[in-house]
Design a protein around this nucleic acid. Structure first.
Length: 815
DNA sequence: AGCACGCCGACT
DNA sequence: GTCGGCGTGCTC
């Protein structure tokens, strides 16, 4: 095995061939990290993907510099998984590697400057910047490029460096440095020599003049003899402020005590009480048995359990079994922050065998979890979609909770995978069982359940047989006609809200639109405030008193007058959650009305604070966006009101109705969890709309039947496979031509009805980039693979046009 | 993705 | 006249 295929953290196709030098040929294994040179001078950390003896024909392979690990850091199963992902999602292995690894584990060489040895510097010919740089180098020997920004203006850096290189005063060097540092904690003990040889009385006599030092010495000695196996933290000594570090230093200088360091895990593990879980109800037992049978048959499970039916209970049971068999568990959540209680319950039961991995961890924290997983110190990992890539050793069970949630799909960076779908694949590679769970499964998963590709397990009763909430549709048109409205609320809805707060219960109002008003419009000339970078109107946020673009994040102050005609008659149109909150606060002046949306929850602990406020019963009404549909499991919420339910339906998306159903059902699950007297009020102009009728009927089988029929009729997933091609560029004419060309290439290979577009994306300009999209609908089943190959071929043909290389291209599989 | 090379506009 | 913009090509 003299050659290795190496994956580099770059968006380049496939892997690269390197020669394995004789001296490491014995050690090198697939899944290890290696340092390799790439391009002119850069050094990258690559992953050994394959070892072979096939010398390359068209180029001379460079040599691997060194191996970074003593054993493989990426398990075989993960390598297979990466390979599958790259194939299925049409992305490069490099992109997967970049995403999968914490950046501290994939070191890149950094460029340093240093003085040329023996350079004789003539300071008289140097300008100020050059002088600074030379002086800095004389002091520090090595300086990296970012550090230079501290004393030379950014625009002059390159010029300065180039001129000093020309003068042969400095040179450039590349260095790879380990970035990850384990956090160390200082401990203290009495010097071993002191304990062995010297008499303690002698020491104490010597300290008679230093009373505090003596006390400190005795304190340490006492602690140490009391509990010889318990290391004594240095920081604990100063906790009450009685001793100071100068006393400590004096004793250490005299050699009486000794300081030593230990690595500490950055993540605090739970060490509180460990709680047993309650027994399953009969209904839950039946469901659990169905799962057991499915697993025995080698089937994965879709667990459809209505809200508060106790899915978590069943999860806990299965987790326990899996761990008893000596295997590990991966528990996936769409977002870690919003699902407090599940983690709490697991934490109580499994304490320090629990690990967390999600997008909000710092890089070093990620490395620590990575290492703990690698050492098999973690039995259960709770994480978001990026947790799929950790180096698990013996995974036995993967649970995907809230499997319908769109947060499982990665949207910002490649690979654009759906964690729910690929968890089934990962489970397959690890030979682990998978449970997808939800109160409102995605239509796709439900379909797989119908086909028995997933075993469908249905929990149709709330835990303890608590009744499901009652739905009521309010015809807002009628209410308006009979003048039974106050702003955005019908009298009927207000009456119920009043009743709820008067009975000391809590209500939730769902309005899924951020901001105060969607548009600020000039009454005289019709001018609306567009974002200067994007093709969207800016949303007015009253609480922050500014206009925000929800696409690029740009902010602007609210115009006092129309910038075009200077009229001061500005109209606010399109109701946002802030406005609903303001309205309700005015209508219920004696009650506590709070708002929960991404804008109000941005501050640190804002969510926790509001959560507690609701838990304590201080809040009477919560007004919020879809955020309130998750995790708010409180006993006294009896009413859920949705004043403008129609706004959820008329979105240009074939999943809009499914989303509306899921959102309304999820939020309705918050009501009457204990009393069984929860009430859901839906205010709409179209009470006859199928979605509202189906929600009201509360019959999941019928609902999914309706969705599936609609999907079939219009050739949408799950009956077809969809691929979305998004193309963007800064120049409108270029991207128009490029997308036309892409469309024609696709049509060359694929049947006419498979290719829709190119057309301008719903938001044509985002962040000054013009967006086009092409939708490709392909048949499911055996033919899919061959059709996808043709799509790939078309993309490759497009890539060959050099003029289109600057076109940014996103391929979204299973759009 | 990064980086070097090479060709054109706007400043000293 | 140069500096620096970015379009193009290449990396085992």
């Amino acid at each position: 095995m003299h050659y290795a295929q190496i994956i580099l953290p770059l968006n380049l196709k496939g892997s690269f061939t390197y020669k394995v030098p004789e001296e490491i040929i014995e050690q090198i294994q697939c899944g290890m990290r290696v340092l390799v040179p790439f391009g002119g001078k850069k050094i990258y950390t690559g992953i050994v993907f394959e070892l072979h003896d096939q010398a390359p024909e068209n180029f001379v392979a460079k040599e691997v510099i060194s191996i970074l690990d003593s054993k493989p850091i990426v398990p075989d199963e993960q390598i297979k998984f990466w390979n599958w992902l790259s194939d299925y999602y049409l992305c490069s292995l490099g992109e997967i590697y970049r995403f999968a690894f914490p950046s501290s584990l994939k070191l890149e060489s950094e460029t340093y400057l240093k003085l040329k040895p023996n350079a004789v510097i003539n300071f008289e010919i140097l300008d100020v910047n050059e002088m600074y740089l030379i002086q800095a180098l004389e002091v520090r020997q090595l300086i990296n490029l970012t550090d230079i920004e501290a004393f030379i203006p950014k625009k002059d850096i390159i010029k300065t460096i180039n001129s000093l290189i020309d003068l042969q005063y400095i040179e450039i060097d590349e260095k790879v440095a380990e970035k990850y540092k384990a956090k160390e904690v200082a401990y203290v003990k009495i010097n071993d020599e002191v304990l062995k040889n010297e008499s303690l009385t002698g020491i104490l006599l010597g300290l008679t003049k230093a009373r505090k030092q003596k006390e400190l010495f005795l304190h340490i000695l006492e602690k140490q003899t009391e509990n010889p196996n318990q290391p004594l933290k240095k920081s604990d000594l100063f906790e009450d402020g009685y001793f100071s570090s100068s006393h400590f230093k004096a004793l250490a200088d005299k050699g009486f005590i000794e300081e030593y360091y230990r690595q500490k895990d950055r993540i605090e593990s739970y060490s509180g009480e460990i709680e047993e879980i309650e027994e399953l109800s009969d209904i839950q037992k039946v469901a659990k048995e169905e799962i057991d049978i499915a697993f025995k048959e080698g089937k994965n499970v879709l667990l459809h359990g209505v809200t508060s039916s106790g899915k978590t209970h069943i999860y806990l049971e299965k987790i326990e079994e899996c761990i008893a068999e000596g295997k590990n568990v991966l528990f996936l959540l769409p977002e870690i922050s919003l699902t407090k209680q599940i983690t709490q319950r697991l934490e109580k039961k499994y304490g320090s065998q629990l690990g967390f991995y999600h997008q909000k961890l710092t890089d070093f924290e990620r490395v620590e979890v990575w290492k703990r997983i690698s050492r098999n110190d973690i039995k259960i990992l709770i994480g978001t979609r990026n947790a799929l890539f950790l180096p698990y050793e013996n995974l036995g069970l993967i649970i995907v909770d809230e499997e319908h949630d769109s947060a499982y799909r990665q949207k910002d960076v490649s690979p654009y995978f759906n964690a729910r779908d690929v968890s089934l694949v990962l489970g397959n590679f690890y030979d682990a069982n998978v449970i997808l769970g939800s109160a409102t499964p995605s239509v796709e998963s439900y379909y797989l359940g119908q086909k028995d590709r997933l075993r469908y397990v249905f929990l149709d009763k709330r835990f303890g047989e608590v009744a499901l909430p009652v739905f009521e549709l309010i015809n807002f048109k009628e209410a308006q006609d009979s003048k039974h409205v106050n702003g955005n609320f019908s009298f009927r809805m207000l009456e119920e809200l009043k009743k709820t707060v008067d009975e000391n219960n809590q209500g939730i109002i769902l309005h899924n639109r951020r901001g105060y008003a969607n548009v600020i419009e000039c009454e005289s000339c019709g001018y609306v405030n567009y974002c200067s970078n994007c093709d969207v109107v800016m949303t007015y946020h009253k609480s922050a008193n500014e206009m925000k673009c929800h696409y690029c994040g740009q902010r602007a102050s609210k115009p006092k007058a129309c910038p075009k005609c200077f009229s001061e008659n500005l109209n606010e149109r399109g109701v946002g959650v802030e406005q609903i909150h303001e309205e309700v606060s005015k209508l219920f002046p004696d009650n506590e009305v709070d708002r929960m949306d991404v804008d109000s929850m941005r501050k640190k602990f804002a969510y926790e604070k509001l959560y507690e406020k609701i838990e304590e019963g201080e809040t009477d009404i919560v007004v919020g966006t879809q955020m309130i549909s998750k995790g708010l499991d409180f006993d006294h919420i009896e009413l859920v009101a949705i004043p403008k339910a129609d706004s959820m339906l008329y979105v240009q998306d074939f999943r809009a109705e499914e989303r509306a159903y899921q959102l309304i059902t999820q939020v309705s699950g918050r009501a009457g969890r204990v009393s069984g007297e929860g009430k859901i009020l839906i205010q709409t102009y179209n009470p006859d709309h199928s979605v509202f009728q189906l929600i009201k009927m509360n019959d999941p089988a019928k609902t999914y039947d309706y969705f599936l029929k609609e999907r079939k009729k219009f050739h949408y997933p799950p009956y077809t496979k969809m691929i979305m091609l998004q193309l963007s560029h800064r120049k409108e004419d270029k991207i128009t031509r490029a997308s036309q060309f892409m469309g024609s290439v696709l049509r060359k290979y694929l049947p006419e009805e498979c290719v829709l577009g190119p057309e301008k994306s719903p938001v044509f300009k985002i962040n000054n980039m013009f967006q086009f999209q092409i939708l490709i609908k392909l048949p499911r089943g055996n033919k899919y693979a061959s059709f996808k190959k043709l799509v790939l071929k078309s993309i490759e043909e497009f890539d060959e046009i050099t003029a289109y290389q600057s076109v940014k291209k996103h391929v979204l599989i299973d759009f």
